[in-house]
Structure formats: C-alpha cells, structure tokens
Design a protein around this nucleic acid. Sequence first.
DNA 1: AAGGATGACAACCGCTGTCCT
DNA 2: AAGGACAGCGGTTGTCATCCT
Length: 337
Amino acid sequence: MGHRCCSKQKVKRGLWSPEEDEKLIRYITAHGHGSWSSVPKLAGLQRCGKSCRLRWINYLRPELKRGSFSAQEEQSIIDVHRILGNRWAQIAKHLPGRTDNEVKNFWNSCIKKKLISQGLDPKTHNLISSHQRNTSNKVVCSLPQPHQQPFPVFTVNQQMTDDASMEVNRLPPFVTLPPLPPTQPSLQQTMAIPNSEYQNPNPVWTAKDQSSQYTISFPCGSSIGSTPIISSSSSSSVNPFGFGFLDENLIWNAHVEPLEGPRLEQVQTHQYQDQHDQQKNKINIGEMGNDHEQKCGQDIDVSFDSSSFDLEFVESTLLSGAICRDLSSMDDLAWNF
DNA sequence: AAGGATGACAACCGCTGTCCT
DNA sequence: AAGGACAGCGGTTGTCATCCT
C-alpha cells in the first residue's frame, strides 16, 4: 500500500537501502530535484516524491553535518527554542548543517529530558515547582488570569541596564513584577512568563522611549484584546519574548491597539532581506543599549498582525544583535528575569 | 542467553500555505 | 474564485541497537 499522496503508484516504504540512496544522490547531483513528484520515476526509485524529498533533505544532502550535537549547538537550540518554541525549521536555520528533523529528534530524545531533570519545563523553560513536578509532569501555569492582570509588566534590574550587551540567560525567564495598581488583586512579585506569552506573542507590546520616540509594538493575544493599557513607570521593562534590551528610560507598554493598515501592509510586503536591512537600520535591539544615545530621535515603529506573525522578521529584527550574528554570543547576553 | 525496556534516529502522516491553471 | 499539485512543516510512529534484569 502506497502513500496517500501517491496511492496510484506502487511505492516502497521504510528504511532506505544504500542502493536507493545511491540512485537518489546520483540523480539529484546530475539533474537537481526539480519537481519532487517526478524524481522517483526519473531516478528509477520505487518511492514517492515526498519520501525522496525527505530523504534528500534530512539525510543525503552533502552539506549536512552528521554526528552528535556539540554542547554549543545544544545550548543554541535551547536558547532559540525558548524564543521560538517548537519551530524546528526556524531553529534549524540557526544551526548550519542540521535539519529540522534532527533538531526535533535531538530535542525530544535528549534536551527535553535534560531540562526536566534540571527542573525546567521544556515547553516554557520555566522552573517547575516540586509540586508541579510531582503531578505527573503537568505544568500548571502560575500566571494570573487575564481578568486579574492582563499583562505582566516586567522590570529589568539595574545590572541589565548597566550592561549594554544582551543575554538570553540560561536561567528560566523569571520576571519581577512591579507593585500592582490598588485595584488589582495582589500577585506574586516574581512569576514565570507563560509559554503563550513569550513564545506565541500575540499581544501587542509597545515599547516607548520617553526621551526618544522608540515605539515597538508586538501582537497580543486576542483574549485580552479589550483590556486597558497597562503601563509601568518603573525604571525599565523587558518584553515578553525574552529578548530585547531596554534602556532605563524605556517603558514597555503592554496594551492592545488595532493594527493600522499601512503599518501592517508595510510589514507584510517587505521581503526578508528588506526587513533585515530595514530593521538593521531601524532597530537593533541588541545594540539598542549602546546606540541609544545616538538613536534618539529616530522613529521605530514596528507592528505585527497577530494572524501573520512573521518569525523571520522577528528573528531578523530582534535577534540580529545576538543569535543571528553568532549563536555563541548567546552566552554574552544577560537577561535578568 | 532470552526478552523486555529504553533511547536514538529515520521515516511517515497529515495539515497548511503557495503557486498555477 | 476554485481546485489541484506541490513544498514545507510539526507531530507521531516505526525500527533498530543497546542496556538491563
């Protein structure tokens, strides 16, 4: 029985033999893959095109790096995963010679367990309390409900503001909450950022620099779309992604604002390179601390549509100062949550 | 030695988005 | 606009080797 995608054909399944590999390599090296659906026939293989594609991408490509992951690669995966979640293809882009499948397998078979053994929730990278760990590995989010506090307001300690470099700390992303307004029920001062808040950042986060006019907006969850603006006048705040640098004068405003058409269009119509170049000029979060003085007066206004959140854009924008440039520099980035 | 448990990894499945007709 | 083909992606399953009892 063949695949659904090629049920008409009699296709082989299961592991690839060296002969099949040889045929596929020989064909693609000579002709390129072109349309994958035609590859098996042309290469003389009894496989479906999808299978050939997978075999080539995940195993046969000459640029693939084989062998076990290095400690640096492992750390990179952890760091990027904390930001992107299970976006294996995106994560793999940061690891030359590694495939999404490989990264995914490595995560599931190795890193996940390692994090759990360290008391960290592999999904959120937050610390799992002993109680939570004891309850069949189910992680209970300790975040307040939206009606209590629609957005956590984060502060960054002074050490952070003193250090121009940005680090994604290996520690779980804990944040310190400022005192809540009197009308709000009291909450813990320290809490973990929930998965949905930093990995799937639907809420619109707006960063404003009082002295300059920096405004950076990120999409927020629709569930809190009608919530009022909550802003903090505390010394500085950090965005929910776990990256970005904010100067002491910066305020992160967590509020929902309807995306303006032109803005959205601007974001969506830019190609990756344009985005990258543009953002290099406009925002370099990683360097914001250093360049803050020089960049005063520059407008930064980036919004995202929650339904078309562009991870590459975010990466190019927010990771340009760190991950994209050199994954090893993650070690130099210090977030104090 | 046998066989069950476990881990690593390859491959498959099903869904989604894009492109083309 | 609709529908089909295709590529890409993330989750899941299958297979095999190794370890443990």
